[in-house]
């Protein structure tokens, strides 16, 4: 993954180097995960709202002091 063999005269030192397949693959994966994260937030909200409607909220309320959290 190193684009260099020595630091003498080196400029680009990041993994794979610029304009490389490795960088493009990482970039596409990063964007896909970003979009996937937003989709996951939507999913979490939908579940949370349904649970709320069913009177089973995500947060059941604070435990009594010193009581172990469930």
């Amino acid at each position: 993954m190193s684009p260099i063999e020595t630091y003498d005269g080196a400029s680009v030192v990041f993994t794979f180097g610029g304009f490389s397949v490795g960088v493009w693959v990482c970039f596409v994966l990063a964007v896909a995960l970003f979009v996937g994260f937003l989709a996951r937030v939507v999913q979490h909200e939908n579940r949370a709202y349904a649970a709320m409607a069913a009177h089973e909220p995500v947060e059941a309320g604070p435990p009594v002091e010193a009581e172990p959290a469930t």
Partner: peptide
Amino acid sequence: WSDNMGPNI
């Protein structure tokens, strides 16, 4: 993905 958008000495 350019040379400038990451560590570059």
